[in-house]
Design a protein around this nucleic acid. Structure first.
Length: 156
DNA sequence: GAAGAGTTGTACT
DNA sequence: AGTACAACTCTTC
């Protein structure tokens, strides 16, 4: 898939980059959180293994990876957890996400949650689509990657 | 299909 | 508290 950089803190993974074309660009993506990284990679070795397997197309369960969402609003947190519960290869709408988070009319807010999701792959925001079931939105060059991830999860 | 209105959560002033 | 913004959704041309 490419290069993925993950930043682990004492309370779980704090930041995970999207699959990038090179190691350096992946590192740039997590630059803001590099300050809280722990210097004991062994603590997050499992996370690394799982992500590696995931990118290889294996049906691993990324839900086991601990994520640090302490400084995130309750709504965002619920939206992310709902997102993590989406089975691999399946998709849900932003509206569905909003319902799980507590307010069915907050679809737009749910979109914000995904947009600011710092934990690429761990919170599979690529499985979230518009209510029409189409892949749209996703800022900039995210769409190609999104469809690639979905295709991979479907076993292709 | 395209355009507009309705709603909500967050960040900033 | 008030305002602007957003990876939304539903209703109407």
């Amino acid at each position: 898939m490419g290069w993925v950089a993950i930043v682990g803190g004492d309370h779980g993974v704090v930041r995970a980059s999207l699959p990038e074309a090179s190691p350096s660009s992946a590192l740039d993506a997590v630059q803001p959180e590099i300050g809280v990284a722990v210097h004991t990679p062994e603590q997050h070795i499992d996370s690394r293994v799982l992500i590696t397997a995931f990118c290889a197309g294996e049906p691993v369960d990324l839900t086991d990876i601990p994520i640090d969402t302490r400084d995130v609003s309750p709504f965002f947190k619920k939206a992310w957890e709902a997102c993590r519960s989406i089975p691999s290869g399946q998709t849900r709408s932003y509206r569905w996400l909003a319902e799980q988070a507590g307010n069915a009319r907050a679809a737009r807010g749910a979109g914000q949650a995904m947009a600011r999701n710092k934990l690429a792959l761990l919170v599979p925001c690529h499985r979230v689509v518009s209510s029409s079931g189409e892949l749209h939105g996703f800022g900039g060059a995210g769409l190609p990657l999104k469809s690639r991830l979905l295709a991979m999860e479907l076993g292709r």
